[in-house]
Design a protein around this nucleic acid. Structure first.
Lengths: 105, 105
DNA sequence: GATCTGCCTTACCTTTTGGTAAGTACCTTA
DNA sequence: TAAGGTACTTACCAAAAGGTAAGGCAGATC
């Protein structure tokens, strides 16, 4: 389980993922524009990590100037419902009465 | 979503959670023994964070020597299936053919 | 031959996170 | 009066994560 969480840790990974969900394929520079606050170093670092984890797919077109696109693998796409489960858990926070108990024996 | 992940970040939180799932209530010292690698500082830090996030419940018995127990809130318990979703996603890693594509235009 | 474009890489620094070791408070028991 | 048991706190240090700024490559264009 810790390993699973490690796959998603990193300040930009989720943001990148949400841009790529739904089969979107984006160029490096598109991601840069879509996520203005990220630096090139961080963007590539997180993309590379997710690539080596098998979540993200890197598509190189040998051109000059270079063209590289990023998309999700099938497995990466399959993450979507699992993240939804977490989101709906989070959404139930207010709904569930806060368990305030202080026995104070 | 980033906020949701933040709730679970921290080297010991998941380990603590898994000890507490199923309605388990444990004393501070029990958790220490159950997780030998954790230091007191880290244990209390992560417990406190999860407590203020509403995941963990702290039960103080006013005795000498002190007795403090930790359990999950209802909302904390509800995390279990969401984590299961992540786990089963991870389990499908091998099963799903690794999408190896390199168009190389 | 200088410049531009797109995708990185590198060096260096700051912030955050985690770890160790020691100390505190309180009352009970020896 | 000294020692002990439990649940913390504190001061200090190391490692990891993240950020900034600059540079490199390869060829097409001016």
């Amino acid at each position: 389980m810790e390993n699973v969480l490690k796959l998603l840790e990193g300040r930009w990974k989720l943001i990148i993922l949400f841009h790529l969900f739904g089969g979107n394929v984006m160029r490096f520079s598109e991601l840069e524009r879509a996520i203005p606050a990220v630096s090139q170093k961080m963007l590539i670092q997180q993309l590379r990590q997710m690539e080596s984890d098998g979540i993200v797919r890197r598509i190189v077109h040998h051109q000059v100037p270079p063209k590289v696109e990023y998309g999700l693998t099938d497995w990466g796409q399959a993450l979507c419902p699992a993240l939804d489960a977490l989101l709906s858990w989070a959404a139930r926070r207010e709904e569930m009465a806060p368990t305030t108990s202080l026995p104070d024996t």
